[in-house]
Write a protein that binds this DNA or RNA. Structure first.
Lengths: 170, 170, 170, 170
DNA sequence: TTTT
DNA sequence: TTTT
């Protein structure tokens, strides 16, 4: 139950590969850096302008696993989640605030790229009764990205995440 | 035109009266602090839990004027806007980052309280051809809040906004 | 899983009390008739115009029970669901088509009226582990509407639904 | 201004080429048939099931022109519009009802396919000050579809629309 | 009628 | 840092 509605809908492209790590519980968490951009014509100068907005997106559980496997820098995705602002300790000892788009069991992730295009996943989807029973949509292997684009560091995607808990959130 | 979708939908209550100020151009800007909350039952302890999320909402132009006039602490509103993260100078000289929900000409504000309930405004609505021609939905006077609740500081709502540009964004 | 996004978001008022019936399985189904309206100024005549749109909303399971208990003609609600168009047999023997907004386990219902205001329910909410274990948010009794407004026919709300399967869908 | 919220968000693929016609005013109207689908596993049989939903989408003005030029059967699009149910005269003389997703000045169309991917258009976008001043995003020629896929009837896409007003709406 |  |  909730009081109020807190909903974010994004369509954009990843600026980097997903950063994925495992929680102590064994569940996965994935962080995405997602770009949306606007272009407009400046009223006075008549020049074309563009502004790119970068969104921090956090995926949990099954969606984090899907992100780890199928998403990479450049991937276009549809995201439905909610806003969460939290405090964290900065390296200078001070407290900082960051706002993220959290995609949990109530959210949605859909890949919009060519081939993979169109597969929406909901964390709480009934067709995935247990985490120990991966569906065809979520094969166990993480080592084969959906669209390689010549990337050779697929395996290292999860390696450097040990420093993901550091003070700087991204 | 834009590349991607950047959309936020909120329903929540204001935690304080809107903070409204005038831009050099004469246009108004209003800042809202909007709460949404979730309650859930902790899986392990079985206890009821609640988390309140506070959202910074920024309204421009006509919507800022409407906020100034009709909204106050406790007001329930529907908001449709977009995420914008920007940097600002903190008082300690360092740079800070804040994420806001911006409601501009493409967004929506709707008051959901009893009497005022249901009036949606879009900044770019065609029935408001010019700022100098207020509609009946936007009477010129700012001094009478829609639901007084005994508030006597209606006029002061715009007064203390001179320091709104300060380093601390809220 | 799904291919594509099919999402409807409505805020409006019920035009009549919910029509609720039980499925053979024992689950409830509730039908709402929900109004949204637009007003605009005619460009040529300058006259003020209004158009009211009536939406057929179908709720299942726990949300249907909540509708039965708490909603009535005039209630303001937030609805998140999906479009479904289906065929049915008209009384003249011909086939007709109707489009509804279906609010199932992936959807949301939130009451926006004064007192009850703000309670959002998701059908698949984890705090409601089983249908046989009603939560405090969903007391078993259906006889006490949240806001009586002097209504005395609370019990009859489910009575006349026997003809709900008829050819005319509303 | 409006009372209530009436919003539809769709991501899906066109089942046929857009049907485009000109209004007496000279403005364009485009009709899309858009598919979204869900797949799930039947709880009892364990079988995989799929249901495809077909949406009638109506675009006006500039968005209709864009649809005429750039969209075709198979195109994937993001749509933001509103529900409108209207009556029309059937060929048997009876009255029928149809529900459509109307994308007008307040709505959004974004093409999600490979190359064209990501270009969102809002009907009322300020960068298009007049219909007589087509932007680069909307070149005057209608004869060259963005992605030909060997289609040879590009020119005929607008030809057969003379019967678009017929009793059967699609 | 689309898509996977 | 993405995309066009």
């Amino acid at each position: 139950m909730s009081r109020g509605i807190n909903k974010v809908i994004l369509i954009g492209n990843l600026g980097v590969d997903p950063e994925v790590r495992a929680l102590p519980s064994g569940d996965s968490v994935a962080n995405l850096s997602l770009a949306t951009s606007e272009t407009w014509t400046d009223k006075t100068s008549g020049e074309s302008r563009e502004r790119t907005e970068w969104h921090r997106v956090v995926l949990f559980g099954r969606l984090a696993d899907i992100a780890a496997q199928y998403l990479h820098s450049g991937s276009k995705v549809y995201i439905e989640g909610k806003l969460r602002t939290r405090q964290y300790q900065a390296q200078d000892g001070g407290e900082r605030t960051v706002t993220e788009v959290v995609v949990d069991v109530t959210g949605t992730l859909q890949m919009l790229d060519s081939r993979a295009s169109g597969a929406t996943e909901r964390s709480g989807a009934s067709e995935s009764p247990s985490r120990s029973s991966p569906t065809t949509a979520l094969p166990a292997s993480r080592s084969t990205p959906a669209r390689g684009r010549g990337r050779t560091n697929a395996q290292t995607k999860r390696a450097p995440t040990s420093d993901f808990d550091d003070a700087i959130p991204f």
